[in-house]
């Protein structure tokens, strides 16, 4: 299933989120199963199917990481169910350091400030990686696709770390 086609969008990484949300709303309306309450059994089934595709598509397209993965999948490179490990010592060492900082933040004088600084640093780095990814996805030759896949894998570590920071912030917000 090509979600770009489903949403009438060009197959590119750059995307206007407001436009995507508007297309989603109108597609969700016309495919909503409630609209088919008096329709035939077959049409009802079709609308349920279509409506779930629209929801899936929206979820995939709205997040940049899953959107990029979808683009590669359409080009025949699937990252789903991948069990290959990443072996980039410099990148992983940095990940380790950031995780140690996150772990030690609770002992700092101002834990929240430490978290916020770390989050800022990570977001800057993540934004840079997304820029690289966007450029790579413009070409669709094998080499660019492989490089884009490598960038996506790294971004997964960044998002994991960012979500752990967010979780800790929430935890501490309740405590203080």
């Amino acid at each position: 299933m090509n979600f770009f086609t489903l949403f009438g969008l060009p197959e590119q990484f750059k995307l206007d989120k407001n436009h995507l949300a508007n297309v989603y709303k109108s597609l969700a309306q016309v495919t909503h199963p409630d609209k088919f309450s008096t329709a035939s059994q077959q049409q009802k089934l079709l609308s349920v199917q279509k409506s779930s595709q629209v929801n899936d598509g929206y979820n995939v397209l709205k997040h940049p990481l899953s959107r990029a993965e979808h683009m590669l999948e359409l080009r025949g490179l699937s990252l789903q169910h991948e069990t290959k490990t990443l072996q980039d010592p410099a990148f992983l060492m940095q990940q380790m350091e950031w995780r140690e900082q996150l772990e030690d933040a609770q002992y700092a004088k101002e834990p929240m400030a430490v978290l916020e600084d770390l989050e800022q640093e990570l977001q800057t780095q993540t934004a840079e990686q997304y820029k690289i990814l966007e450029d790579l996805l413009v070409s669709s030759d094998e080499q660019s696709n492989q490089k884009a896949a490598a960038e996506i894998r790294k971004l997964k570590f960044m998002h994991k770390l960012l979500s752990e920071i967010a979780r800790k912030e929430e935890e501490w917000f309740d405590d203080f």
Binding site: T83, T85, Q87, L92, Q95, R153
Partner: peptide, 15 residues
């Protein structure tokens, strides 16, 4: 000897 590896699927890092 130092081995650094990561699992992209879950974001786990191992040293």
């Amino acid at each position: 000897a130092t081995g650094m590896v990561g699992a992209p699927a879950c974001g786990d890092v191992m040293k």
